[in-house]
Design a protein around this nucleic acid. Sequence first.
DNA 1: ACACCTCCTGCAACCGCTTGCAATCCGTGT
DNA 2: ACACGGATTGCAAGCGGTTGCAGGAGGTGT
Lengths: 343, 343
Amino acid sequence: MNQSKAKTIYDIAQEVGVSPATVSRVLSNSPGVRPEKRERIKALIEKYNFTPNIMARSLSETTRHMVGMICSDVRNPYYASLFVECERAALERGYALMLSNTLTQQESEVTFLEKMVEQRVDAIIVSGGIIDWAELPPYYASTLARIAAHTPVITAGRVSMPGCYQVAIDHTDGMHQAVAHLAGLGHRSIAYLTCAPHIQLSKEKRAAFYAAMASYGLPVREEYVVEGEEFDEFTGFSGMNKLMSLAEKPTAVIGVNDLMAAGALRAIARLGFTVPADFSLIGFDNSYISDLMMPSVSSINYHYATYGKMLIDIALDAIEGKSPPQLTVIKPSLVIKESCRVL
Amino acid sequence: MNQSKAKTIYDIAQEVGVSPATVSRVLSNSPGVRPEKRERIKALIEKYNFTPNIMARSLSETTRHMVGMICSDVRNPYYASLFVECERAALERGYALMLSNTLTQQESEVTFLEKMVEQRVDAIIVSGGIIDWAELPPYYASTLARIAAHTPVITAGRVSMPGCYQVAIDHTDGMHQAVAHLAGLGHRSIAYLTCAPHIQLSKEKRAAFYAAMASYGLPVREEYVVEGEEFDEFTGFSGMNKLMSLAEKPTAVIGVNDLMAAGALRAIARLGFTVPADFSLIGFDNSYISDLMMPSVSSINYHYATYGKMLIDIALDAIEGKSPPQLTVIKPSLVIKESCRVL
DNA sequence: ACACCTCCTGCAACCGCTTGCAATCCGTGT
DNA sequence: ACACGGATTGCAAGCGGTTGCAGGAGGTGT
């Protein structure tokens, strides 16, 4: 409450009777301090609970020991999981992680990038984002390019651009596994609930869906691919309702993510049908909501711990000049739960 | 990729032919710069997309323009919502918000406090945490007291301590509303699923439950108050199973939070019963999972936008020496959905 | 023409810590 | 007693901004 001033290495130095340089060396565990003196200094640091001012330190070193992460909304479990795992990995390597939510407002994505630069984070992880960069206002791409020129930028599970490190999820593989599972159970009429077509992720997964279906020799009926504006529960709900109104209904449904699948499940139940008895269902992201559902919904998992660690490793390697790979691909895997059954 | 150096006000100053002081004044919109010169400087700042180094700035100003927030796990929707709203409010007042997850490890809560101090955040919001401070190792309380002596600490919805600003949720009121709703529907046998008794939040809500029941003249049967170790879905699941094994079952169940309620719902469904036909159900937190459930679960809401803004306002007011109230109470309100019915 | 005032500006001292470099201290070897 | 080399230490110059204060440029009144 009464804002007293924090101690500095000068205070410590003076009390021990050495120069601040010596205290600094003790703090950073540098060699070249007589053991006995080192101990006395350490004792004083302990006594006062002295914590060096990280801004002053960052100012003189050139590294900030902090990486920034931008996501659209951490209330989405996918981002929450990714953030938690990234933070864990970052801490292990002595870095802090700072998170910002764009809340899916296009302008704010640029604003937040600038804020991260202002903070002089050592690297920026851009995770998600609703924007299809191909349709971006030019300033977005140029902002990113400019920033990437001096700070490593890592894109996570979204479209990337030259100059950024990219960690991509192999959605083709994931979708393949989903379709394979359903096909293996005998399903041939598989529908797909997806979100706004202009979103890059949407395009990518949609193509993956077509490819996967083709590789199993399954036809894709146009009315079985339902697009909505968002990628939330409500979109899944209304999308599924459309499917339910068809004369010839699909027997299985894949949702572009777990929220969509949850909405679909709700729509199915509303009309008195049951999963998996009447419809089989698969989601993406394997967030805990897929476990909360009744029945629990099979979902494509990304192994967040590995995913997060990979992002941080790439970021820190880039910072340390180790030139990590430009492109890394995360292999997803289907987690089978209770939402699919043999046809 | 090729790490070029960022520009400084010196570079700008030199190019315009003024002193860095003048550039600084332009940056901070200080008066006392000839308009024409100001424009030239602004143009150059724009041209180079110059962003001042916030660490250098923070070092000379004494404020960091950043507040820290510590929560146990942002994957829990309650924390995610609170964080998002706090960030929004902080940005509005020109501050950044930095989040850390303790992942419910006792030691790390202290570690993270120290990390926030290291970052020299202007204030620290401590939200949640599984620790009952009465049973804390002394160093925790003393760490907090020491920190609170120079940096405002705001506790959010958890036990507080002298020297900290406290924002408390009126769980007594919330529980009262929950019980009132059920009692109003004719329920008399109301059970309560809660978490580890040594957790402060647990104690508080439990007492609130007893009080609310008493105020409606309803008896509390000991076996209707089920304690589990955690406060997650599984605990709710197993807790509900215990209730289901009783000869005389309750007709309504209140979960200490939505996750517990979700677990309960699952247990109920597993045994072939239905909500709300066979059991009425109420949760706390009004997170989106309560909407995803089938049926959607009535839940006690805290109006996160207000809650978050309040936290930030208190933090920033404290920083600015406006001495905000030591104790603020959030009034919850029941959001009625589909999980309760007239008995 | 001169005193006086206002408005701009730049100087230089911080903010707290790191670090290259030079100085000092000490124990040895001769 | 003295040169020598390694281990310690302190000096001082940054890192990139902010700001109080003094000085200079013009404009005004007399």
